[in-house]
Amino acid sequence: MRLIAAAALLAAAALPAGADEPAPKRAAPKYETRERHDPDGIGKFYMGREIARVMGFQGASWLERPERVKEEEPAKLVEALAVRPGMTVADVGAGSGYHAFLMSPLVGDTGTVIASDIQPEMLELITEKAKKQGVKNVRTVRGTETDPKLPAAGVDLILLVDVYHEFSHPFEMADKMVAALKPGGRLVFVEFRLEDPKVPIKLVHKMTERQVVREMEAFPELEHTRTVGTLPWQHVVVFTKRAPKK
């Protein structure tokens, strides 16, 4: 019996912090479909917000447009993320990998950037770019509409750039991402500001800060720790996963 108890203790010690805790029960998400809706949306609504159509891989060139540097100032975003060497970060809905490659030199040789996307064509673009640039710390993962396929309790930072509003199952995706975060890990939403009518983006591809916070209230493990408002068109809404109670 002592041997069995010792083995159980060793196994528990080998698990990531918080991994042995039971997953919290969530209220089932309430989605609604409407016949009359924005033509740029899918007619499916979550908490009053219409979900936008996914931008296909055919639009990858728009993600890599030179004007993006001026329009979005990604250097300011990356600075706000405070990425450090050795971190495991995930770019969910990575698209062409624009932000994944910005974070790659910051995590360094001891860190990893996980580029998750549901479109294999996008992942192929990332793989080709990594080969051309000799980047070895960016790895691709093909997610699904309900699961980004991230390691449980294994990620320090999850970045969502202009993509959460396109998730057909936002509740299920957020649930999986929360489970993937380490205690103290951050879930970061970068969304075009719906509050600002001057931001030249289609309405269903914009979100208010209030809406993002409201949708994350379903996850009590998350704390809204800050919102960065220094980017030209987007706000950066940051949530931190609370450490498990002892």
Rank of each mutant, 00 (worst) to 15 (best):
53 R>H: 12
31 Y>R: 03
78 V>L: 07
117 D>V: 13
91 D>A: 10
112 T>N: 03
9 L>Q: 14
27 A>D: 14
73 E>Y: 09
69 V>Q: 15
7 A>S: 12
24 P>S: 13
61 S>V: 10
48 G>T: 07
73 E>T: 05
47 M>P: 06
31 Y>E: 07
72 E>K: 11
60 A>W: 05
74 P>V: 13
145 E>S: 10
24 P>N: 12
70 K>C: 01
94 A>L: 09
113 V>H: 03
89 V>S: 01
140 T>R: 06
103 M>F: 08
135 V>W: 09
103 M>I: 00
41 G>W: 04
137 N>Q: 13
105 P>K: 13
95 G>M: 11
42 I>E: 02
51 I>E: 06
89 V>M: 03
51 I>K: 03
128 E>W: 10
82 A>P: 03
118 I>P: 07
105 P>N: 14
118 I>Q: 00
110 T>L: 11
33 T>S: 09
85 P>V: 02
116 S>C: 08
15 L>G: 01
13 A>D: 10
17 A>C: 09
25 K>T: 08
62 W>P: 00
137 N>E: 08
27 A>V: 14
21 E>T: 08
78 V>P: 01
121 E>R: 12
90 A>K: 04
75 A>M: 05
16 P>L: 04
63 L>P: 00
136 K>I: 02
106 L>D: 00
95 G>H: 10
134 G>W: 15
89 V>C: 04
30 K>P: 00
26 R>H: 13
8 A>M: 04
64 E>K: 07
20 D>Y: 11
119 Q>M: 14
42 I>V: 15
94 A>F: 03
73 E>L: 11
40 D>P: 08
65 R>W: 15
88 T>W: 07
80 A>S: 15
73 E>F: 06
119 Q>H: 14
67 E>Y: 11
34 R>N: 04
93 G>F: 02
70 K>W: 12
67 E>Q: 15
32 E>T: 11
92 V>P: 11
92 V>Y: 06
106 L>V: 00
144 T>A: 07
110 T>Q: 14
98 Y>D: 07
70 K>V: 13
144 T>I: 05
109 D>Q: 15
120 P>T: 10
110 T>D: 15
133 Q>P: 00
140 T>P: 00
97 G>R: 00
135 V>D: 05
145 E>I: 06
37 H>E: 01
42 I>M: 05
29 P>E: 09
11 A>V: 09
144 T>H: 02
134 G>C: 13
141 V>F: 04
46 Y>W: 15
131 K>C: 00
145 E>A: 13
123 L>A: 09
91 D>W: 03
103 M>L: 15
